[in-house]
């Protein structure tokens, strides 16, 4: 097992590479979810603003 982790002396390079690969791809996969939540929250906000504004518009004229 330690042999496997040492990678013949190149362990630091090999495992950093794998880690960079996994971390970057994981972040990249999380990004659309975060953005999706932001977009949907924004749309909900817009819908609510319109819902609260609508009755006031009826009163003013």
């Amino acid at each position: 097992m330690t042999d496997f982790l040492a990678m013949g002396g190149y362990g630091a390079y090999v495992w950093t590479s794998i880690a960079v690969f996994l971390v970057v791809l994981a972040l990249e996969a999380l990004a659309p979810g975060v953005q999706r939540r932001r977009v949907l929250a924004e749309i909900r906000g817009r819908v609510q603003r319109r819902a609260t504004r609508a009755p006031r518009n009826d009163e003013t004229p």
């Binding site: 990678m7 013949g8 002396g9 190149y10 362990g11 390079y13 090999v14 590479s17």
Partner: peptide, 8 residues
């Protein structure tokens, strides 16, 4: 030639 480093 490259040992285990080639696994990158």
């Amino acid at each position: 030639q490259q040992g285990d480093a080639y696994r990158i």
